[in-house]
Design a protein around this nucleic acid. Sequence first.
DNA 1: CTTCTCACG
DNA 2: GACGTACGTGAGAAGT
Length: 940
Amino acid sequence: MTDTAQPPRRVVLVDGSGFIFRAFHALPPMNSPDGTPVNAVYGFCTMLMKLREDTRPDHMAVIFDTKGKSFRNDFYPDYKAHRPPPPEELIPQFGLIRDAVRAFNLPSIELEGYEADDLIATYARQAAEQGADVIIVSSDKDLMQLVTDRVEMFDAMKNRTIRADEVMEKFGVAPDKVIDVQALAGDPVDNVPGVPGIGVKTAAQLITEYGDLDTLLERAGEIKQPKRREKLLENADMARVSRDLVRLKTDVPVTLPVDDFDLREPDADVLLSFIATHGFKSLTSKVKAKFGGTVDENGITEAGTGVNDVSVTKAEYELVQDEESLKKWIAKADYEGVLAVDTETTSLNAHQARLVGISIAVKPGEACYIPLTHGMGDEETEPKAAQGGFDFGSDPAGDKETADIPKQIPVKRTIELLKPLLEDRGVLKIGQNIKYDKIIFARHGIDVAPIDDTMVLSYVLDGTSHGHGMDELADLHLGYKTIKFTDVAGTGKNQLTFDQVPLDKALDYAAEDADITLRLHRLLKPRIAQEHMASVYETLDRPLVPVLAKMEALGVKVDADKLRDLSSDFATRMAALETTIHEMAGETFNLGSPKQLGEILFEKMSLPGGKKTKTGAWQTGADVLEALAAQGHDLPERLLEWRQLSKLKSTYTDALANHINPQTGRVHTSYGQTNVNTGRLSSNDPNLQNIPIRSEEGRKIRTAFIADKGCKLISADYSQIELRLLAHVAEIDALRNAFKNGEDIHASTASKVFGVPIEGMDPMVRRKAKAINFGIIYGISAFGLANQLGIPQKEAKEFIEAYFEIYPGIRDYMDRAKEFAKTHGMVRTLFGRKIFINGINDKNGMRRSFGERAAINAPIQGGAADIIKRAMIAVPGALQDAGLKTRMLLQVHDELIFEAPEAETEQAVKVIRDVMENAASLSVPLIADAGIGDSWADAH
DNA sequence: CTTCTCACG
DNA sequence: GACGTACGTGAGAAGT
């Protein structure tokens, strides 16, 4: 890589995947300060430290399996088919181990479609051919075939070197005959068939006698033992397939050469910080002795400034306009194993934006911008229809255009070159709101992975105590004022799209974005473990990013004709109502203006009960109008009807039609992952989480959400998830039992609170209990409940008292939640998500009560959000494993909507419900109900 | 750019 | 005794 690099003499290749499993089982359980299991990570770190000492390599790399299928499955689908899933405590450690490799400044290598063993085989061959000695750190017998006089293995757990002698001991043959023995003996763990009845002993004997597998199979007829002869003749093909399975591939198309494994010192403070955040205190002094550094075991620098001091110095950024230069940047990123990436486009809407350029940062201050379509209008990609009459001079149009278009690498070629890097499982891609960039890249055929997202990191750490936009984060954490988009593109009507921004300005802006993202990552990522958020980030919010990106890209089919019909129906009825209302009022006015309406109702008509808002305007909300209507006033009644139709038309039928993407014919929402204080998602552009359902008229909108041809929609929703969660976290036995017995929870509550039998219950009684149940979740007050039910406050207060009587423990839970919030300024969900509570210690009583109610509600709402996130992360894989094509489209807090080929709907429902109901294990059952239909209205 | 109203869980 | 509240969102229209 660098000019000073020496050719490799001593190369250490660590089998990272093999080590994780062995360390996990060999070491006692350990947890980081936030409770994430880390025993395998700890074992790995101590092993790496020791390895550098003991083996003194000049080149070193850690190699991992990827989780998907390998090329072996192409010719033998059952290969490794019976592997049980890894233990729950190991799962979060896979990601952390890769982080550890980076902290040690070692290359982390993996490649989709290949196992770690194949990569090791390939690199071992390459290194040996260059004359280097190779040490493979592994005890996996499958790697023993690689042993030569240049290549040895080292079992780091047992401190044992494995050479030809040890291989002979294990397999009874020399290393070059190991695959022949394995082919005969098979391997039940990896599901390699072999020849039945032949084990390692017999296999070694046979191979020794006949020389090799092919000769043996050719001459199998000569074998004296009849059983053995028969089996060999019968299973000759199986033996050959088995040999193909166990033979490691030594020509994997690896992207990084062995030369790039040259051993570099880690950044001592980065490493110390990693160690401190995971609680590996015993390693601190060893690391300091070896590498220096100034961070203590608590992650604090001795100078007291913290490792997170990242000063931003004005950097030189590079404009990339040719392939040579681009390849250089790709190599740099590959070498670092981590990069920040950002796309520049023509629109904030990822589904219709056109790619304009890409920026990449590989180190703080080291970033580039690759312009792609600057100076090119849409006509460059989508040729306009020919039109006459506008050809003014005799200037050849082509010359004019090329004069304006700067030199740029073709989009297609750039994508081709970047794809291996952006899809390399061993290279971390960091983005600020990388979901957006993932969608853009997906439209160009690139599946960006693995990822980290500074916006999501910031959200997991700080909740919504501040925004998570890059400009704000840069100012907050780096004290740096970024170049604003409006600085380069202008504002208002004359705002340029990014493809119109001159290259010099584009370079400064775009490269800075990637640079700042990388710097923010260095600062925020260590805090995740320090502040005990590893589990939330690693198992919930990070894995959710690609899931949401897919859902958004898929979109949902919407019937434009249906919307148009509804819209015109609403318009007709609104016009009629408008005439009637104007007649009643005796004058025309804007029905949509609360101000004008208030004046008509309370001044002109002098209706009673007028109240003003804090700004002095008349209140004309639905509750006020309903009260007036109940007194027999017609105008408010009609106006309510008009308002409903107006809302449905403007917000739904009309607006939704404008959101249908012309290319896909579908509506693509965008999910906000960092907007909601409690951990819920939000949906915008358009908001598909508030499509009407409660009113008959409104529900019609849902008939316009339909399945694609040959498909059905499936809607699966959690039943009473928040009440169940309340029963669980507050440990309310009576409530838990009601759920365990599958009772109607509102009727059950009503029966207990009001002392009436469930059989033949007055629906009004049940309704009251339902309101109390909901009220409890919201941090009940007598005022609120009275308002909700339209009963005197005194009566509401009695209900609440009765409720606390029958469910003792509720009050305790509420007090605990409030107390915790007062002390810590936040509450936590079951899964460890922090929810910051504003105003909990405010002097103002009203703001304080507000905070107290939020503190009661947040663990419930947030816990439910965590659970459905877990389900969303698991469902796509479960559907795929079941061989189904069903795809998840939408999430509405406790409901998931899928599109399923008709033939597989029943099977899909089973898989979906199973995943949802097992997304968390609580002391109450989780129940998901599902419906199937042609439209969302039918499926619900 | 803020306020009001109303759609959802 | 009065305050003015149910928890969490996003969007359209009016009125500054």
